[in-house]
Amino acid sequence: MAIVEVKNLIKDYGALRAVDGISFDINEGEIFGLIGPNGAGKTTTLRIISTILKKNGGEVAIFGMRLGHEDARIREIISYLPEEAGAYKNLTGFGYLDFMAGFYAKNPSEKKAFIERGVEIADLGGRLKSKVSTYSKGMTRKLLVARALMIMPKLAILDEPTSGLDVVNSIEIREIIKGFAKNGVTVLLSSHNMLEVEFLSDRVALIDKGKIFDTGTPSKLKEKYNARNLEEVFMEVVK
């Protein structure tokens, strides 16, 4: 069943059309990857679906709720990890998880469970007690991924989830994302790292210059374009 439906989505920044009539569906429990080069319109698309940018045209429905009409309700069930994000410098890592859990938990025991899950994902050990301002880029990213996933959102929107992480941490985070999908979290992610997306995603959409060129499972796409990996598929498609 499609729980995210995007139809003819358009976004203009002044004269620039950043998203140019794209359409795609995401099924429940699926990991859906948007891949494309820099400036393709990935972040713009994710921001619109996350309710923080207003679309200029088209329709988006999330679990049947119409974007632009029921944004407050949509925010209850989604979790967004921005491409470039930080945490409050004055809080500790733990304090940050506690603060964010406060918006989603319905009662103290649920909040406790959220935070415990967050602590586990962040995997920062004793450093969770130090101020975020003392974290490295990768540590901050892990904290933010943990924050995005700990609340078990129905839809997790992750913009370049592993950006700034080293190989070991990237692989770890990918495994965590996969695990969450198995537990019923639907994931929409973007990346220009096509190998990452190939590994993670059940289905991908190839986006460039605000348009989607093709959508499908990685294996189907590779077959269709007779390519060894998604990078080659992409080069074929945008040719």
Binding site: R75, M100, R147
Partner: peptide, 14 residues
């Protein structure tokens, strides 16, 4: 500056 605004705007609070 700390790039926390984007996240805050997606949080379920009016």
């Amino acid at each position: 500056q700390n790039k926390t605004l984007e996240t805050l705007l997606t949080v379920p609070i009016q």
